[in-house]
Amino acid sequence: MIARNYRITAPYQFEVQVDLIEAQDNEAIVRTEAGAICKADLRYYTGQRERKILGLKYPLCLLHEAAGTVVKDRTGKFKPGERVVPVPNVIDPESCANCSQKVCEDPALGENYCPAAKFASSSADGFSREYFTYPVDYLVKIPHSVPTELAVMAELISVANAATRRLPLSGKEKVIVFGDGILGFILTSVLLFGGIEDITIVGGSEKRLANFPVPVKINYHTDPLPQPQFDLAFEAVGGGASEAAFESISQVLRPGGSCCLLGVAEEKIRINSRIILEKGLCFAGVTRSSRNDFVKAMNQLTDEKFASLIKSSIIAEAAVGDVVDFKNEFEYALSHKGFGKRVLRFNF
């Protein structure tokens, strides 16, 4: 069949294009129902990537946070009408035969570090499409109790799950999270429901911090940094503020402490290596997530309290009926400095 999509072709410029939709033997056809805009989408929208990189990426369908409905699946794994979330990180099984790195076998890394992986909305088209074909192994069924708009948040939850894989937790650690944006919020929620009781959040906005479900909140504009007492830190800041966050994290970690970095800084930042050496700190990075992180996210969302918390980060549902609506949502996401994000409801 022929289906429509919204592709970015240049900074700030979307076009309506049409694609032939043909499912391969291992693929289902999925109708996109909802999606959300991520910071990475905004970087493509504003053109904040190296020019030569952008030249290779455009034209591209954006969005990797999405939920849809299976309309046809000849593999028999899904029935028409079943709701699914696509895992944006896909590995072609043929690439496994000649793989020497096998990062997917390391539980701390996983398939999201596979060099052969394609990531939707970066190295492959994302989900701003009327219909898309997708390998059934990378579609995760949405449980009946989980509303579609909430399922869109599974991608962010899965990234938080990937972070907890990177730095395994016993539950007794003293944890500090830097970043009062949506990722910081989801990460804090995941940690809280994962049994971590002692969590401190650091952010720059009283309004955003007010939404975090932890007792200790530090506004870095007005409050002093706590003493170096934390076992683990999670950095969910990204952008230009990464450098200051990195420095603060180095200060508040106890000797031998560890940090997981999740925020993306497009520009290179300076790192105070002396303090890392003096305190014997460990820094690990995490980006994206694996299929199992999505499966775990779906299970987490069946918990009413967890679901309620995540739902509080959805500030509105926005109907997207045409490419103008779509572009307007990107403009809104660019200007939005408050808490939470909007879920886009597609009606192609």
């Binding site: 049409v18 190295s123 492959a124």
Partner: peptide
């Protein structure tokens, strides 16, 4: 022409 526009080489 519309369908050709949608065809693209995959990039990594």
């Amino acid at each position: 022409a519309l369908l050709k526009l949608g065809k693209r080489e995959e990039v990594s």
